[in-house]
């Protein structure tokens, strides 16, 4: 597998570390309740097909990437920088 980092270009998967499903970007409010936190931490759609997940370009530029990937074929369909897609709620 190779991932096309938007900053570094096409690189071997050995340079990247996977964090898991991109649901990690949608953290519930601290008081959202057990169901919401369980859904965030544990429950997964786990699709056989297209999924989005977070990869870190550990041995490269250090950017967090949002990767759209097919879990059946391992084909990588889209790579974006997380910082471009995250809605910030705080002042910065």
């Amino acid at each position: 597998m190779q991932i096309r980092c938007p900053l570094c270009g096409l690189r071997d998967v050995r340079e990247f570390t996977i964090k898991g499903h991109a649901i990690a970007l949608s953290r519930p409010a601290p008081d959202a309740g057990d169901e919401a936190w369980n859904a965030y931490l544990h429950l997964r759609e786990n699709p056989a097909g297209v999924t989005t997940e977070l990869w870190h370009h550990t041995a490269g530029c250090g950017a967090w990437l949002k990767v759209t990937r097919n879990t059946i074929t391992h084909e990588i369909l889209k790579v974006a920088l997380v910082r471009d897609g995250v809605e910030r709620t705080d002042a910065d």
């Binding site: 898991g20 499903h21 369980n38 859904a39 544990h42 429950l43 997964r44 759609e45 786990n46 699709p47 056989a48 879990t71």
Partner: peptide, 18 residues
């Protein structure tokens, strides 16, 4: 490994990743 798909047929989402 197919637990999530079959459970989804019953409307369930599982704490499973394949």
């Amino acid at each position: 490994g197919r637990s999530s798909q079959v459970a989804a047929m019953a409307g369930m989402r599982l704490p499973i990743e394949s």
